[in-house]
Simulated scan of single mutants.
Amino acid sequence: MHLVLAGQPSKNIAGDLGISQRTAENHRAQIMRRTATHSLPESVRLDMVANGLRAGSSIQK
């Protein structure tokens, strides 16, 4: 999830994790289904809320 929130494309995530691009895409889709989000910005906002951050705050993970 950290790589998705960092804006990494599925191809890069797959290479970093040693999995196929399709597997990375399936995991990304599953995360979005489970969190009921439909876009990367929506996922980022959900993560910020879950971690108690506000827009404009510095994100360090």
Rank of each mutant, 00 (worst) to 15 (best):
T35H: 12
A55F: 08
S58C: 12
M48D: 10
G56V: 14
A24D: 09
L40C: 06
N12G: 12
K61Y: 15
R28E: 12
R28A: 15
P41W: 06
A55M: 10
S58Q: 15
A55V: 15
R33P: 06
K61I: 15
Q21E: 15
Q21K: 14
L17T: 05
R45A: 15
Q30H: 11
L3M: 14
G7V: 05
N51R: 11
V49G: 06
L53V: 13
S20V: 02
G15R: 07
K11L: 11
S39V: 01
T35M: 13
S20L: 08
I59C: 09
R45F: 08
N26V: 06
S57H: 13
E25Y: 13
H38L: 07
E42Q: 02
Q60D: 07
V4T: 07
R22G: 11
R54N: 05
M1N: 04
T23C: 01
T23D: 01
A14I: 09
S10K: 04
R45N: 13
L40N: 00
T35C: 12
M32V: 05
N12L: 14
I13K: 00
A6D: 15
Q21N: 01
L5H: 03
Q8P: 05
I19A: 00
I59Q: 12
V4R: 04
Q30G: 06
L46T: 08
G56F: 08
H38F: 12
G56K: 02
D47F: 13
L40R: 06
G7K: 03
S43K: 00
